[in-house]
Nucleic acid binder design. Structure first.
Lengths: 223, 223
DNA sequence: TAGATTGTTAATCGATTAACAATC
DNA sequence: TAGATTGTTAATCGATTAACAATC
């Protein structure tokens, strides 16, 4: 068992959705079979890695043949839990919350948005795709009456921990966190954080790396 | 030099913004000095890792004392290139594009949004924070006339590669990609992809992992 | 000075890649 | 059968952690 309490390491798990995307493309192009070598060339990874990754979950290929695209696609879809459905809510119905609420692709993959919540009286009562924006004060009551699997947090840093506590205290099993802060939650709760600013700052880092190390080199010579 | 052409490994680089966030919190709370051990306890990482990471860039601490919070904060800010400014544009002014356009925090960190682009005639001509939404057809001309460092792509998969080509052919040095597809770009172009669906699917995976491996175990017994 | 804590080297751990026997 | 390609073991590589001399 990995350090995150995961059976399979997160390094592998994070590659699975990408495999699914590429297989879905192959399916669309009516490609019926594929070898790990050919898939590896398309994806820019090693064939070894693909075979190792898949074999965490079972032997999906056939020696001398490769993999049946449709079977493998279905297998990975099931591994990702995308053959099941999930109730979600969004807390924070600002621009980002509304953007995520608008992604109908998530609905198609089995993630059903049950409600949005906000503090802003101007937003409360409005609807997005016929899903109402409710007062965040009613969140605990809503969670008592509705089974919610995933809470999507799109609120400012300030109130994030407080909302996370409400979610985890009321049966929500996983949090998709867009608040730009880290959350403290019980061990059995899954947290997936998307820190947009962290992601952006890696870009500015990389834009400056060469210059930075020229400067560091120069300082070293001085001493 | 790392495999991404990076001097410092991306594993380290991706931790830097988090260090900066924690140091900024310490600053706010008027904490002047901190040891790697105490910071490690707050952040839930090892003190060794913090010292190793920082020493990729220089010796910022002092034996027997620790680190001066303000100095270290400023150093990491400079390492991340956040002491400089960047011109950005957003291609795709839908919900997500508008959400990102609305993040005034990015402006504060030196990322200046110069324009948005869209194909939708209903959006073209509108403004967000006084920044106009332009016709995507005018994108090449705009890039000729304006130095743009970072192109932020919030468009559907279908046209993503095409737009990426326009950006990279016209002097944009980095792409922050929210289109749910991989992009092919020249080696010298920086791409940072935020695959929201990939992130979400790791949650459904983790919600089902235990059950999945019970099933796999059962199948193994059968054979 | 004595205590604390860094910067850095060495040891460990985990992830990736290579190799190849098994087998379709 | 011969060729191809898997599943899996072994080797390599890189990242993390531990240890400790240097030094504030």
């Amino acid at each position: 068992m990995g350090r995150n309490g995961n059976i399979v390491s997160m390094a592998v798990v994070r590659r699975l959705p990408r495999y699914q995307r590429y297989l879905s493309e192959l399916l669309k192009n009516d490609i019926r079979r594929i070898s790990s070598r050919e898939l590896s060339e398309r994806m820019g990874v090693t064939a070894s890695q693909i075979r190792q990754d898949l074999n965490c979950f079972g032997g999906f290929g056939q020696q001398g043949y490769g993999y049946n695209v449709e079977d493998l696609y279905n297998a990975i879809t099931a591994i990702l839990g995308l053959d099941k459905s999930y109730n979600t809510i969004i807390v924070g119905a600002g621009n980002l919350g509304q953007a995520i609420a608008g992604y109908t692709n998530f609905e198609k993959s089995g993630f059903t948005l049950r409600a949005l919540f906000d503090v802003n009286p101007k937003l409360i009562g409005l609807s997005i795709r016929d899903i109402e924006i409710l007062d965040v004060d009613s969140l605990p009551d809503f969670l008592h009456e509705n089974k919610v699997d995933i809470g999507i947090m799109c609120i400012p840093r300030r109130t994030a921990q407080q909302v996370a506590d409400i979610l985890t205290d009321n049966g929500v099993r996983a949090i998709w966190n867009f608040s730009m802060t880290d959350l403290n939650v019980p061990d059995n709760i899954i947290v997936e954080s998307v820190h947009l600013s962290d992601s952006l700052y890696t870009i500015s880092y990389r834009l400056n790396e060469d210059e930075l190390f020229k400067k560091i080199e120069k300082e070293r010579h001085r001493n």
